[in-house]
Design a protein around this nucleic acid. Structure first.
Lengths: 208, 208
DNA sequence: GTCTATATTACGATAGAC
DNA sequence: GTCTATCGTAATATAGAC
């Protein structure tokens, strides 16, 4: 059949990525079929192959876009020299980003094992670049005596896991808004590096 | 064909669970076929259905066994009244358990979305029971003034995420042993609830 | 209790019309 | 650029022999 009236390659490609993201986040990459993705885009399965040579390439495209976006956003943050301020900014940034893009974040760490070796290595490199940023802040704060840290590599992973965890339980419209979550996590992270956090008053639990 | 010489139902059932666990942890539930599982057990795919009516029931069986095992192990821990000691014990327990059973832990939170509604609800209930245990400790410590906590529910999830994160990066034979990891995490968790942790000396990073 | 064989359905990917 | 149709393969699950 001829081109559908009003169809547009660029639009369709975006649509495919958008719908695949939602489906992968919901059911998992392996459990989603090309037919399902096409169905959500209101096209036929064959048409997907105009944009992506394989199903794998859709997943790779999504994860690469996410990692690049995350790193760009991080690099676009104002530079801060003082490790304490840097750690606060990083925490706020991470929490906000992970709350704002739950599906992207979710597949970025749930679907890693479904990547073939080469794409896997590429994505892992970008992840490590992100982790290195936090590790740098911790090392700096440890060196100048601001932070009390037993082990920087372990503490780096612990902080990232703690923060990324919001992705699994936070939902808009719940008891706490994004700003409140941010404040709580900034305090949690400051505590982890041995700084006394200013307690939030009134306690957030009492507001709710 | 007749029964294979030396075959034994109970043994085979255990074997199936063991091999399925490894495969699911490695490739993901949806990406593993019944034939693959059977192949690892050196039986034919049809024989699996003597033990499990569906592929789903294997996953459910694994997750249920894990959650029950986790909760039993937790309940078998010596009771401690003091919230500070209780939090230390809980942290040690969690870290050790999560390092000792990486595959079980991994599928327990990676494959939740592949459970059908009823099994899903059952597993979630058990997860929440586990979370409630930690939340109870935090509330108690907050009430008696031992802990400084902005928000108990959020802090509960933050601590669990932080600790469970070891599952994604810790591997035996690395720079740090289980005991060292335990000590580091106990300090991290104590810090999170506003307690000053005794710094580990000499710093673990310097030993390595 | 396990085998072989198979029913049925669905998958990823491709070909060719328009 | 999207369609319909289909190729080749593999999935879950079942049936019946031994």
């Amino acid at each position: 059949m001829a081109r559908t009236i009003g169809s547009n390659g660029k639009e369709t490609e975006k649509r495919v990525l958008k719908e695949a993201l939602t489906l992968f986040a919901h059911h998992g990459y392996a459990a989603v079929s090309m037919r399902q993705i096409a169905g959500q885009c209101n096209i036929q399965a064959g048409a997907l192959y105009n944009y992506f040579p394989t199903k794998q390439s859709i997943l790779h495209g999504l994860m690469l876009a996410h990692m690049n976006d995350l790193l760009s956003a991080l690099n676009a943050q104002p530079k801060v020299d003082d490790p304490v301020s840097a750690l606060k900014s990083f925490t706020q940034f991470h929490i906000r980003y992970h709350i704002d893009k739950p599906a992207e974040v979710f597949i970025a760490y749930m679907e890693l094992r479904n990547l073939e070796p080469e794409p896997y290595a590429e994505i892992m490199k970008l992840r490590q670049e992100y982790e290195r940023f936090l590790r740098g802040i911790l090392r700096q704060g440890q060196a100048n005596g601001d932070f009390q840290i037993d082990d920087v590599p372990v503490t780096t992973m612990a902080i990232i896991s703690m923060m990324t965890g919001v992705n699994t339980w936070y939902r808009y419209g719940g008891r706490l808004g994004v700003e409140e979550i941010e404040k709580i996590y900034v305090n949690l992270v400051l505590s982890v590096v041995g700084l006394e956090a200013e307690r939030l008053t009134p306690k957030l639990e009492e507001i709710a």
